[in-house]
C-alpha cells in the first residue's frame, strides 16, 4: 500500500516549497508540534484590514507530507480569512478520507494518505498552525 503513498504530485508539492520561509513583518505567527512524531510547523501571516491573508510563509521541520501540505496550503491561502481557510481544510479532510466527498485541487493530491491513518496528522498540522495564527 505504502508503495503508492509518495506519488509524484505529493512529492512535487513538497519540492515546490511554495511559501517556505519567514515573513519580515508578520501580523501573527503560530507554531504547532505533533508530540507523537516531532513534526513542527511555524506559520507567519500578514493580514489586511479585513483579516484576510495578504502574505503567508511557513517553516516546516517535518516529513514530506507535512511539507507538501504546507506548500499546498500556502498556494491557496492568500486572500482567505479564517472561514475561507476552514473551507480549504474540509478539502484536505475529504482528500484523506476523513470527510465524505471529492477533494478539489491542490489537496486532491493527498488521496493516497487515506490509507495511512498514522500519517494523516502530518497533512493537518499546517492547518492547525494556521488556525492558531488566525485566531
Amino acid at each position: 500500500m505504502s508503495d503508492q503513498l509518495y506519488q509524484d504530485r505529493i512529492v512535487a508539492l513538497a519540492k515546490a516549497k511554495t511559501g517556505a520561509g519567514k515573513l519580515a513583518a508578520p501580523t501573527k505567527s503560530a507554531r504547532r508540534d505533533n508530540p507523537l512524531c516531532g513534526d513542527r510547523v511555524t506559520i507567519d501571516v500578514r493580514l489586511d484590514g479585513q483579516g484576510r491573508i495578504a502574505e503567508i510563509a511557513h517553516q516546516v521541520r517535518g516529513c514530506l507530507l507535512c511539507q507538501a501540505s504546507a506548500s499546498a496550503l500556502a498556494s491557496v491561502a492568500v486572500g482567505q480569512d479564517a472561514a475561507g481557510i476552514a473551507a480549504v481544510r474540509h478539502d484536505a479532510e475529504r482528500a484523506i478520507g476523513r470527510e465524505q466527498g471529492e477533494a478539489a485541487e491542490p489537496f486532491s493530491a493527498f488521496a493516497p494518505v487515506a490509507a495511512h491513518k498514522a500519517r494523516q496528522e502530518c497533512v493537518l498540522l499546517p492547518f492547525e498552525a494556521l488556525k492558531d495564527a488566525l485566531s
Binding site: L5, C37, C63, Q67, R119
Partner: peptide, 13 residues
C-alpha cells in the same frame, strides 16, 4: 533531504 518518517514509510513498502 529526506525526513526519517519518509524513510521509514518507504522501507515499509
Amino acid at each position: 533531504g529526506v525526513h526519517p518518517h519518509d524513510v521509514a514509510q518507504t522501507l515499509d513498502s
